[in-house]
Amino acid sequence: MVVSVSVVLLLFVIAALLMRSKNLKVSHALVCGLLGFFLAGSSLAPTIQSTVASTADLVSTIRP
C-alpha cells in the first residue's frame, strides 16, 4: 500500500505539472490515465466515488 500511495502522489505531481504547460500530448493523457487507475485501486477510491456521486446529485438538482 505504501508503494501505491507514493506512486499516486508522484503521478499527481506529474499530471499537475503537465496540465500547467497547457499542451496535451499522448504522454500527458497516459499519465492522467495511470493516475486514475492507481487512484481507483487506492484506499481513497470510496471517498472519491462518494464525493463525485454527491456532486453529481447536487448538480442534477440545479434547474436552469
Rank of each mutant, 00 (worst) to 15 (best):
G33H: 12
M19T: 08
V52A: 12
N23L: 14
I14E: 03
V8C: 01
L17G: 14
Q49M: 09
L39E: 01
L44K: 04
L44C: 03
T51I: 07
L44M: 11
S6L: 09
L24Q: 15
R20I: 14
S50K: 15
A16V: 03
F37M: 13
G41Q: 09
L10F: 04
M19D: 13
L9D: 02
G33E: 09
L11I: 01
V5Y: 01
L11A: 03
P46M: 08
H28L: 04
A29V: 10
P46Y: 05
D57W: 09
S42G: 07
A53L: 06
G33L: 13
A53G: 00
L39N: 01
F38I: 02
H28E: 13
V52G: 03
S42P: 10
F37I: 13
S54Q: 15
R20N: 13
A56T: 14
M19S: 08
A40E: 04
K25P: 00
M19H: 08
L24W: 14
S42H: 01
S27C: 02
L24K: 15
S43D: 13
L35A: 06
F38G: 01
T51K: 09
G36P: 02
P46W: 05
V31C: 06
P46R: 08
T55D: 05
A40Y: 09
L24I: 15
V7F: 03
L11D: 02
L9P: 00
I14G: 00
T51Y: 04
A16I: 05
K22E: 14
L18K: 05
C32V: 15
D57L: 13
S42C: 02
L34V: 06
S27T: 12
F12T: 12
A15H: 07
T51Q: 11
D57E: 15
A56I: 15
L44W: 07
V52M: 10
T55G: 11
K25C: 03
V13I: 11
K22Q: 14
L30P: 02
L35P: 04
G41E: 11
D57R: 14
A15Q: 04
I14K: 06
F38R: 01
V13W: 04
L44T: 03
H28F: 05
V26N: 05
F38T: 04
L11F: 03
D57A: 14
A16F: 04
G33P: 10
V5C: 00
I48E: 00
T47C: 06
L35T: 07
S27P: 01
F38H: 10
V5D: 09
L39H: 00
A53P: 00
G41H: 07
S21E: 11
S4Y: 01
V7N: 04
F38L: 01
S54F: 14
L35C: 10
A53I: 02
A45L: 02
T47P: 00
M19R: 11
L10M: 07
L10W: 04
S4C: 03
G36Y: 09
